[in-house]
Nucleic acid binder design. Structure first.
Lengths: 222, 222
DNA sequence: GGCTAATTTTGCACGTCGTGCATCTTTGCA
DNA sequence: TGCAAAGATGCACGACGTGCAAAATTAGCC
């Protein structure tokens, strides 16, 4: 079921990662050219030089190939949130963790840009993207809850179940909200930026979005 | 392609709405009982007393049946946002519009509850729900932009493209962000509430979420 | 009631998706 | 080199989703 191991030095792991990347890239390029709905699994597989059956060894769904997310992004963000300076608010910690990750992702400029176009062209895939990030969202909520717990020390008003979480229990309302809102913020930033690529840099949009969130989404005229 | 007309007195329209509702209800009930993935279109169609082909006359996708959203919810919310008292902030206007809509939805208590369970059980469908609300999200962004334009009058700092929108142009960053964050807030509320139905009323969770948003998502301990 | 036109439902054929299973090939290791 | 583990492939099969044309239902009219 699309098992994917973390970075390993072995030749096997390396090849698997390469194949997965090749499939994802082929999917995005074909979708950018012909439209996502017109791209069959057969075409993607052929472009990547593997059989159709193999495609489904890497992705559970055709659409997953367009949305591909680096598997250990979640783990890195979790760590960044936990390791962030104690002075930062949860929102700031999450912002910085995501910014670092996005800056990295933006390095493969062309492919990322193509993907943004593809996702923007068919909202259907945007939703799939949200789904792909949903597990990561849960992890993020956990990380936030744990950070709260660490910061709160003995007296952890609002960190226990109800608005936070003890490690091992399910996160409360606040961590979940923060995680989902932050994910949405990324999506909104990408969506806006993908239609204004010439006017603004993505990271500028991203930071403006978090500024608005931290300010409580006040009317822009005020 | 899943054409659905607004409320009409004709016998034809009435029957279409009834069939659609019957299909959606059958889908949710079957999913709640057997798990969403195990429910075939054939089973849903049989339960609703129509042919498989007819199912696809009402829904583009099997999953759409689980996620069904009242088609003119979007229009009602738009109107509520525009008609809200001038003293309310955009966030408050959106909150109240959504609260009214959700209070209405909660009237079919049992079915709504079942649906919440089904969606929560398979995150896959939650994502589909987001997708279903995506168009509504764009409408909401438009409404927010228009409200800003109306409130700002001649001097509409931040309402024009860039952070708002003139009616007819595509919404700026702020309206899009507000719309997507508000939608996410609803989703987060439902998600949390669906695991705490005994402890808290849904609308209480909902209002707490918007309180947190308006406060800029501060750490709960502060 | 009966007739006609419009709309809806239905069956059928077809292509694509996604999965289980058996087999073959490649990799890792001694 | 030879053996064991893991991945790739082909094949069969059920389910999804769509176009098309025929049958059934409804609305409007006499």
């Amino acid at each position: 079921m699309s098992e994917v191991k973390a970075a390993g030095g072995g030749l096997r792991e390396r090849k698997k990662r390469a194949t997965r990347a090749a499939l994802a890239e082929a999917a995005v390029r074909l979708a950018a050219e012909h439209g996502a709905e017109k791209v069959t699994v057969e075409a993607i597989s052929a472009a990547a030089g593997v059989s159709v059956r193999t495609f489904f060894n890497y992705f559970d769904t055709r659409d997953d190939a367009f949305v591909v997310v680096d598997v250990d992004t979640g783990a890195r963000i979790r760590r960044a949130v936990l390791d962030a300076p104690a002075g930062l608010s949860p929102l700031e910690a999450v912002r910085d963790a995501m910014a670092a990750e996005l800056a990295e992702a933006e390095q493969q400029h062309e492919l990322w840009r193509l993907q943004a176009e593809v996702l923007h062209a068919s909202p259907h895939l945007l939703a799939r993207g949200v789904g792909a990030h949903m597990a990561a969202e849960a992890d993020l909520a956990d990380a936030v809850a744990e950070r709260l717990r660490a910061a709160g020390g003995g007296d952890r008003r609002g960190a226990g179940p109800g608005s936070g979480a003890t490690s091992g229990t399910t996160p409360g309302l606040y961590p979940r909200l923060l995680a989902s809102v932050a994910s949405t913020a990324v999506r909104a930033s990408m969506d806006y930026w993908s239609t204004h690529q010439e006017e603004a840099a993505f990271l500028d949009v991203f930071h403006e979005v978090f500024r608005l969130l931290a300010a409580g989404l006040p009317a822009p005229s005020a």
